[in-house]
Design a protein around this nucleic acid. Structure first.
Length: 870
RNA sequence: GCGGAUAUGGCGGAAUUGGUAGACGCGCCGGAUUUAGGUUCCGGUGCCGCAAGGCGUGGGGGUUCGAGUCCCUUUAUCCGCACCA
């Protein structure tokens, strides 16, 4: 009798209901078992769940279900990173309120996630845009203000002069405002900062403790924080034409050894001296404005043309006052880095060399590269950035670059300028303080009040929350909080005089910098319950996209430290294990006139190289484009419901983890999804088709074929546990395929055999179902019940492998002759090298090769390989 | 520009530490069953060659008994760069 096909459309909702009614995934804080906290980066409620989410949350769910089966008290929560710009854009476009749009999206997406069968604790769900969340964030802000970790200072923003609004970098397209098209200006204003640089040394050194983070991410963070050792050197300005009160320019350098190669000083357009010069000289002002117009993002500056302006000022060389060096303003020098001034050494730095060549500044070689001839060496188009021997450098000549560094340091620390050393050793960081002010509505209001009498006054904690007003309009650009008729007008909490609320809201990265702590006690009327946070944290396994490798993860690490200062928790690092998963990509389709088409609009014909695409309705031939991250703009998205409705959530889950290693991109293909579904049906046939014959029992008397089947099963069980621990899902899935291939025939034979064989088949099938349960939980429940097990598999313990069943007594060793495989030999596992060597040399194919000559050497790698050098 | 990564059959990929390259899946070819098709089952499938055999992990060079893996060099592609989340 043919087994009926497994029907996910009826099975999946049934088991989801059973889990929910049994409250299987609701986690208690007072559970005595060991904790395990698995967290996926929570989603921004953009509208619908996409395949990237499915992949991310499936990975987390496999870990959660596996760890739960292993006996841990697992915390696996879900929430919404719900503040942000897209909600305001939607509000402008659709004449709705950002909150309404956001909460509607959350409802949709929650439903989609639930249909995925994720083992989430929904009782801890929250959205960061809800006042019950952001009121606590305001409390934390006040604590940080109190501890000196939040402050207000000058900052630069993109200003759209037509829309009269601040723009995000994303909203600046080729230097123009995205809506107005106006040239964007850089404007300085007072903004709020978090003092992340207070922790820069710790943030970089503690990276060494994060041994369960990808090496790549740790490196990216270290480079981002950018610790560098060097010297701060003061250059005395030559007096006659220097601006008032300016006597020197301080420069930070990591290469004081190349000081004799200095041919100019370059300062940033925002350097105080440049500003003073600009105030007097329109040509300087024009040049500085031009620098600001070119944009300030690193990428624009580094890629763009380097240009400079000769100020006419000169400075005296710190090692030889006879030498004077001109001072330029240059667009590639940033006020944010170091001191906002550099000394240009054309021979030792490619950028400086290009600059010197462009403006006819001298370029004298000071480092002789290793192996170069001193007499003939000349500087070409390439600067010498590597170590070497000093030349043309006065008292440094002949020293190595390292020794020259020390010699210069010694000298400059002894030399005095205005009673202070000319040079001092310094450690500098590239990391800047975190600017958190956003001139937007849909964010957490910064809880301070500006009073003409008292200055900046924190909102008293008793007055929290500072709630966002609901009655706002998005009919024009700018921050609705600024033009709200009443919201900003309050009395000063200190003096009672009329005062103004801060209308800046916080960067949404603040919201996501502590949500993982909030999940440990989301009901608390304080930001955290410190005991709960300390018990659950750090997150044991955090999973998310590599795009967050720097900002979100660094901010969270900072926030954890800041919250410790404010006594909200007491841990070192927020995330013990980190995994960064790859994207889900899909082919793109465009008509000949360049319009994007959805996969559903396209009909594919042919195979591989001959493959062509045609527009479904017009029949027009369509260009098949490259694999791209699924995105609305390129219309190459596949929604999870497309799959769940036809194949079920398990198919989507299985496919998302198949084939591609989880850290790499995976391509969504219909064929792949079909393959995943085929496998699900295959497992169902194997289980349901044999369920009548098998039953639990003693299999110790089972036949050799049945025991072989159990050996294969237990070996796989052992290996899969290791795969899941390492998040090697693709390998686990390959192994499960292999196992099903191996045991399908023995199962069928055993199911109609002796009681011991039928018991063996029952045992093997039960283990197989448990192995797939973390990935395809609905199918596993259906199979589990069909095999006659009581209770839900979601609540069952992970099986343990039988050590007797995973060892072999003989092993097949490959035999190489001169490094080429020529045959195999079966040897006892216990055999020593001499025995193996003797056995190998007696083999026919070996003696035939050697033809009577003695081998030069025989290498036996126990358990691995034998190589004969003839 | 700076920083980071990747490269293996027709395709996605596997190969714990330097030890059988191509597991597993997709696709394709052949067969069986059913047949309206799909499904299902069995066999084959790196390349060249009739075969013996040879060649094969982006290219070039090196270390080693042995290299996808280590070293040098080179090419191509991808990602991040501080107000997108």
């Amino acid at each position: 009798m043919a087994t009926e096909r497994y029907n996910p459309r009826t099975a999946e909702p049934k088991w989801q209901k059973a889990w929910e009614e049994g409250k299987l995934f609701e986690t208690k804080n007072d559970d005595p078992r060991d904790k395990y906290y698995v967290l996926e980066m929570f989603p921004y409620p953009s509208g619908r769940i996409h395949m990237g989410h499915v992949r991310n949350y499936t990975m987390g769910d496999v870990v959660a279900r596996y760890k739960r089966a292993k006996g841990f008290n697992v915390l696996h929560p879900m929430g919404w990173d719900a503040f942000g710009m897209p909600a305001e854009n939607a509000a402008m476009q659709n004449k709705t309120h950002p909150g309404k749009w956001t909460y509607a999206n959350i409802d949709t997406m929650r439903g989609q996630l639930k249909s995925m069968g994720l083992s989430l604790d929904w009782s801890r769900e929250f959205a960061t845009c809800h006042v019950d969340y952001y009121r606590h964030q305001q409390a934390i802000f006040l604590d940080l203000l109190d501890k000196g970790l939040a402050y207000r200072g000058p900052g630069k923003v993109n200003w759209d002069p037509v829309d009269q609004t601040v723009l995000a970098n994303e909203q600046v397209i080729d230097g123009k405002g995205w809506r107005s098209g106006a040239d964007v200006e850089q404007r300085e204003m007072q903004v709020w900062y978090f003092r992340i640089t207070d922790f820069n040394e710790d943030l970089v050194s503690a990276l060494a403790t994060l041994d369960q983070w990808p090496e790549k991410v740790r490196l990216m963070q270290a480079n981002w924080i950018g610790r560098s050792q060097g010297m701060s050197i003061r250059w005395a300005l030559n007096g006659d034409n220097a601006p008032a009160d300016e006597t020197e320019i301080e420069v930070f350098t990591t290469r004081p050894d190349t000081l004799f190669g200095a041919s100019f000083l370059a300062i940033a357009a925002d350097h105080p001296i440049a500003k003073k010069l600009a105030a007097e000289n329109p040509a300087v002002a024009e040049f500085c404005d031009e620098c600001r117009r070119r944009g300030t993002s690193v990428i624009e500056i580094e890629k763009g043309e380097k240009f400079g302006f000769d100020t006419g000022l000169t400075v005296r060389h710190p090692l030889d006052p006879e030498i004077t060096v001109p001072v330029w303003i240059a667009n590639f020098v940033l006020m944010d880095y170091g001191t906002g001034a550099i000394f240009g050494c054309p021979s030792g730095d490619q950028r400086d060399l290009d600059f010197a060549r462009k403006y006819g500044l001298p370029a004298v070689p000071v480092v002789l590269p290793k192996g170069a001839d001193a007499a003939s060496f000349a500087l070409g188009d390439k600067a010498v950035e590597d170590a070497g021997t000093m030349i043309n450098s006065g008292f440094l000549d002949g020293l190595t670059t390292t020794d020259a560094f020390d010699a210069v340091a010694k000298r400059l620390q002894a030399d005095m300028l205005d009673g202070r050393p000319v040079g001092t050793h310094q450690i500098r960081f590239r990391l800047k303080d975190w600017g958190i002010s956003r001139q937007r509505y849909w964010g957490c209001p910064i809880p301070v009040i500006h009073c003409d009498e008292c200055g900046i006054v924190p909102v008293p904690k008793a007055d929290l929350p500072v709630k966002l007003p609901d009655d706002v309009e998005f009919d024009r650009p700018g921050n609705p909080l600024d033009r709200h008729p009443t919201w900003r007008h309050v009395n000063c909490p200190q003096c009672g005089q009329a005062a103004r609320r801060e209308t800046d809201t916080m960067d949404t990265f603040v919201d996501s910098s502590w949500y993982f702590a909030r999940f440990t006690a989301p009901w608390a009327d304080t930001p955290t319950i410190p005991q709960a946070a300390d018990a659950w944290l750090p997150v044991d396994q955090y999973i998310g996209g590599i795009e967050h490798a720097i900002l979100h993860l660094l901010y969270s690490r900072f926030f954890t430290r800041a919250m410790r200062v404010a006594d909200h928790l007491d841990i070192d690092e927020p995330f013990r294990g980190l995994f960064t998963q790859g994207m889900v990509v899909h082919e793109t389709y465009r008509t000949k006139d360049g319009k994007w088409l959805e996969p559903g609009d396209v009909r594919l014909e042919g195979h591989d190289l001959t493959r062509k695409a045609f527009h479904f309705t017009t029949g027009e031939e369509v260009d098949i484009g490259p694999l791209e991250k699924m995105s609305k703009s390129k219309k190459n998205t596949i929604g999870p419901e497309d799959i769940t409705q036809s194949y079920g959530a398990d198919t989507a889950r299985w496919f998302m983890l198949s084939d591609s290693p989880p850290e790499r991109d995976v391509e969504w293909t219909d064929r792949g999804a079909e393959g995943a579904h085929r496998f699900i049906q295959r497992v169902w046939r194997l289980v349901a088709g044999n369920a009548i014959g098998v039953e639990a029992g003693d299999w110790s008397d089972a036949g050799e074929q049945s025991l072989g089947m159990l050996r294969a099963t237990h070996k796989t069980l052992k290996a899969i546990g290791e795969d899941f621990e390492r998040l090697a899902f693709n390998k686990a899935i390959a192994r499960i395929h292999q196992l099903v291939n191996d045991i399908a025939a023995p199962i069928e034979a055993a199911a109609t055999g002796a009681p011991a064989d039928r018991a063996a088949a029952h045992s093997a099938l039960s283990i197989l179902v448990q192995l797939i349960a973390p990935v395809v939980p609905h199918l596993a429940e259906e199979c589990w019940a069909t095999l006659g097990h009581e209770g839900l598999i979601a609540a069952a313990s992970w099986p343990s492998f039988d050590p007797k069943l995973v060892v072999e007594d003989s092993i097949l060793l490959p035999v190489q002759i001169n490094g080429k495989k020529r045959g195999e030999i079966s040897v006892p596992v216990a055999a020593d090298n001499a025995t193996v060597e003797a056995l190998v040399l007696a083999e026919d194919f070996v003696t035939a090769y050697l033809a009577g000559t003695a081998p030069k050497k025989v290498i036996v790698v126990p358990g691995r390989i034998v190589n004969i050098v003839a």
